[in-house]
Design a binder for these strands. Structure first.
Lengths: 353, 353
DNA sequence: GTGCGGATCTGAATCGATTCACATTCCGGA
DNA sequence: TCCGGAATGTGAATCGATTCAGATCCGCAC
């Protein structure tokens, strides 16, 4: 293997006829160096196109200026924004990000955390695969002295900083909006019940019903597994069984499944069924009808997550923080008021089903 | 700052009553160690929860097992798949990925490459901000001995491996499909003309027209800057000026803009206007109508890109490779045949405009 | 001319893992 | 019993930057 060696600090030193320490001082600026030598050093740096070896620096300083970021799956349209936010914040503070996908599998998460630990990252931003049960692998990393911030999904049982979104309030506000529009038969397609995020959104749904004095009926609840296919299947079932006049999905990809189901059943939104969803991906405004949705501050989740993490790195003994970001309801065409004629029609039809 | 030091190889050695070298040999498996000592070492490793310091390892071995990945913007739905592919391939070969966004800005790209260089990544996967003009910052990195693979956008003027998509053929096939469906007035919304990707797709459009003996009219070409807003504006213009019966967009986010424009102008696809687009994001099947699209093998772009890069890292003197991946045309509802009545109607209208 | 303080610089130790020259052990065969 | 050589271990040098104790230099006051 042919290696083109990069210049080292010693070569720069030799060329500038100074010691390595002086080169270091010039570049770091920590200790003043005479103008004469400084110029010599800078010229040598330029001539050799010297780029300090950050690996050696990390070893000596015992900090890598690297942060780990573990998300479920970057392919899920919710995460890119968050990753982008995290990256921007990290870059701003001269840190770099190592991003991993866990696919929400705990065994993989365990491996990833182990890899990050061996790489000596200074801290980890974690969207935990599971938030309950055996969290020992996370605990271990913390005990090894690597700060962790739980993003999007809180880890109540661990002493970690958490940055989450108010899922309950977001879902509640949205379902309340549906109720306000006259809907009484509202279906919900949820995510995997073992995920608190999914449970919280269901909780918001229930609270909205309760607040309006409406009864809760489990037949209107389906698990779409947070996936498009699941949303599709769940929608087919709901529409052919309990006939809701509105469907609320707990994330956006499932909403796509719902739209596909409507398509196939030759139903139209909002005429036949109102649709609203958690998440507000770019396509929400492009689909027909445009989707009423609960926008999460996903960019902020990443950006602030990194800021909390950096703060923790510098103040390891700071009090544990747990911040909850608000969602924003974006009302669009998919929940526009229906005509009373249509409403009547559906009432009639569903009574027959 | 309170530091919880992690165990070092020396501590493991002391606890197992062996030398550091022996611990290293046990863990790497390169040199055989007697069963007796091996067990002692492994037990010490377990007791101390030893995780080798990869930073020290990198310094000594002069390889970090890190790859850099520079994309335009992870927020663009085309990239997550690619990043995921790259990450999977990297992880499989025990490499990690450092992902950056350049926003297609050359100054930023320069900084990112410099950062990657100082970090001593073993190689870089680059979606270049520009493919022509001053590419010296890229050239420098290569001269420093860091292999680069240009993904998605070729760098013809540099001696780098390239992995791209056949944009010309993909666009041509798609436009040919529109022609086959009877369209004669076909608008195209392109990306920034300084990007070869955009130029190639336009080239494919032109070739399709030429192959069918249709004249090329610049009035049917608009620049949508690869952004939703641009696609929206361009569509409004096209539809109110030259009245195409079909619109082809050079990327998917612009197609979203087109759909929004149709929405606002109260036009319907495919009844009034057929729509087809380059890129095949998840929402292509969810929007109404489902979008005919040119699917890029974006996951493969990342996966194979990393494999080419790793191959280059191990064989620096290998002949330069330049691989072109094929696209796949996915025909969906947005280009379904129109009735002749409709066609007539439009001919009439456009003649008036 | 001498001495002294401050400003600059140098040189060596250090971070933690790898590796290689060398030391030690152990075994069979003579 | 002794030797050769294979098998197994040890210890020190090394990677490249940082940092700090100590060396050197300079000007100035006495």
């Amino acid at each position: 293997m042919f290696i083109v060696a990069m210049a080292t600090i010693k070569e720069v030193a030799r060329r500038a006829r100074v010691s390595a320490g002086t080169v270091s001082n010039v570049l770091s600026g920590a200790i003043p160096v005479s103008e004469r030598l400084k110029q010599r050093v800078l010229e040598a740096v330029r001539e050799l196109d010297y780029h300090p070896n950050h690996v050696a620096r990390s070893l000596k300083l015992r900090q890598t200026k690297m942060l780990g970021l573990v998300v479920s799956d970057i392919t899920n349209p919710f995460f890119p924004q968050m990753v982008r936010g995290a990256e921007d914040a990290a870059w701003k503070h001269n840190y770099i990000l190592i991003t991993f996908n866990s696919d929400d599998r705990q065994d993989r998460e365990r491996q990833l955390l182990s890899a990050l630990r061996t790489r000596r990252v200074d801290g980890i931003l974690l969207v935990a695969a599971a938030t309950e049960g055996d969290l020992s692998h996370i605990q271990c990393v913390m005990e090894a002295g690597i700060p962790i911030v739980a993003v999007d999904r809180a880890l109540e049982s661990l002493q970690v900083d958490c940055l989450t979104v108010d899922n309950i309030a977001g879902a509640q506000e949205c379902v309340h909006h549906l109720i306000e529009r006259g809907h009484r038969r509202i279906g919900i397609i949820t995510g995997p019940p073992h995920l608190p995020v999914a449970r919280d959104r269901l909780e918001g749904y229930q609270r909205a019903l309760a607040a309006a004095g409406l009864p809760f009926d489990a037949a209107f609840v389906r698990d779409g597994a947070f996936r498009a296919e699941g949303g599709y299947q769940a929608a087919l079932e709901l529409l052919s069984e309990v006939r809701p006049t509105a469907i609320f999905t707990s994330n956006a990809v499932m909403a796509l499944g719902v739209l596909r189901a409507l398509n196939e059943m030759d139903l139209e939104s909002p005429r036949d069924v109102a649709v609203a969803t958690f998440d507000d991906p770019p396509f929400a405004e492009a689909v027909r009808p445009q989707l009423t949705s609960v926008a999460q501050p996903s960019y902020d989740l990443g950006y602030k997550g990194v800021e909390i993490l950096l703060r923790r790195i510098h103040e390891p003994n700071r009090k544990r923080v747990s911040q909850v970001l608000k969602t924003e309801l974006k009302i669009r065409a998919s929940t526009e008021p229906r005509t009373s004629a249509m409403e009547h029609d559906w009432r009639h039809t569903s009574a027959m089903g």
